[in-house]
């Protein structure tokens, strides 16, 4: 029986955010926006959703006088991401 795909990760924008964060130590909101091409509002909503379930950690602060939001993937997020990729591979293998 095929495993259920994590609905939180099975969304284009949230998956892109998780893929970026999986490959970096940390990054900020502007970088995520540049890389995903999403609007600020949409990106902000999806970041909040991922943070609510503990997949990513968000820190809001200032760099000089400019507000800066930094994000990094958590241990739970890494595990969920790994499980999601494993599940995807099973789906693809089952489809062949």
């Amino acid at each position: 029986m095929l495993p259920k795909l994590d609905p939180l990760l099975h969304s284009e924008l949230r998956l892109a955010i998780m893929s970026i964060l999986a490959g970096v130590d940390e990054t900020d909101f502007n970088y995520l926006k540049e890389q995903t091409g999403a609007t600020s509002g949409n990106l902000s909503v999806q970041i909040d959703k991922l943070a609510e379930v503990g997949y990513i950690a968000v820190e809001k602060g200032f760099k000089g006088k400019m507000p800066r939001t930094t994000c990094h993937i958590t241990h739970e997020g890494t595990e969920a991401f790994r499980s999601y990729v494993k599940a995807l591979k099973k789906y693809i293998a089952a489809g062949k």
Partner: peptide, 11 residues
């Protein structure tokens, strides 16, 4: 105004 990012390689 470019976003900031760091990973193992940049470190």
């Amino acid at each position: 105004q470019e976003g900031k990012v760091s990973n193992d390689v940049s470190r």
